[in-house]
């Protein structure tokens, strides 16, 4: 019993220590923004490996998710004779929830894990230490551009996911199942609010991009510099990002859509 309490206390303490280190790391990373802005090249390269490399998985998944929503929504709605509102259903679920959340989960799996592995290996092969000895701050030079790239790519990816999904829903809904195309779009436009739905969805995805990039970079930076340590850190990135995304989604949803 005492051992268990000791273990509990110890692990609580270490997790707070880690959170503290993570926060310090985040502050350092953010403070590097000014030194990155004059060098857009650094950012561009990272936009490529973070954003462009996630483009395909995001658009393809978005298309399929939209198509499934179209199918499922149609069968459910047609029971009530409300097939015309298919567009609303597809768009609302994508823009409010599935777009930001699923694209952030995919982003954590695709780009986040890659970032952690990259940074962890850089640490294991003394590249970060080497940079420090060359009087180059690895946080500013390595972390900040990647962080910014993640922050900027995430809303774009989420918007793409939702847009492609809505088109996918339309392909299935009106192309295959015969929902009137005009009704699909006009009902959608009547119900989806720009500020309440679109902007809130974008805010969500920015928050998710922030958290996922932070977790991915910090786990890599904090990884034990061995192959096992890096692989564990990569796993932690995906798991912790998923938890944070879903938890934050709940909080943000209550804040944004709670009082109608």
């Amino acid at each position: 019993m005492i051992q268990f309490l000791q273990y509990l206390g110890e692990s609580t303490r270490t997790s707070f220590t880690k959170l503290g280190r993570g926060t310090y790391f985040l502050l350092q990373t953010v403070s590097g923004i000014l030194s990155v802005l004059p060098r857009p090249r650094l950012l561009l390269t990272q936009m490529y490996s973070v954003g462009v490399m996630s483009f395909l998985i995001i658009t393809i998944s978005g298309l399929f998710v939209g198509m499934v929503l179209g199918l499922q929504g149609y069968y459910t709605l047609s029971d009530f004779g409300a097939e015309e509102t298919l567009g609303v259903m597809v768009a609302a679920s994508l823009v409010r929830e599935l777009g930001p959340v699923v694209s952030a989960l995919l982003f954590a799996g695709r780009a986040g894990s890659a970032l952690t592995a990259e940074i962890g290996l850089m640490k294991a092969t003394e590249q970060l230490s080497g940079m420090e000895m060359m009087a180059v701050d690895p946080i500013k030079r390595i972390m900040t551009p990647r962080f910014l790239a993640g922050l900027m790519s995430m809303p774009l990816l989420a918007a793409l996911f939702s847009a492609v999904g809505i088109i996918g829903g339309q392909i299935i809904g009106s192309g295959l199942l015969g929902v009137d195309e005009g009704a699909y779009w006009s009902q959608m436009q009547a119900s989806i609010d720009f500020r309440d739905d679109i902007i809130n969805g974008v805010i969500k995805s920015i928050v998710f991009g922030f958290v996922t990039s932070w977790i991915a970079l910090f786990e890599g930076y904090d990884a034990i510099p061995t192959s096992e340590g890096v692989s564990r850190a990569t796993t932690r990135t995906v798991v912790n990002s998923a938890f944070s995304i879903l938890g934050l989604d709940f909080i943000l949803t209550t804040l944004m859509f709670g009082d109608d």
Partner: peptide, 26 residues
Amino acid sequence: RKRLGMLFQSGALLTDMNVYDNVAFP
């Protein structure tokens, strides 16, 4: 540190750049 050079055991070359860019890095 700009006036110190350090040669790490592993070399610590930046793996995402070629040899030329590595030497040009500092």
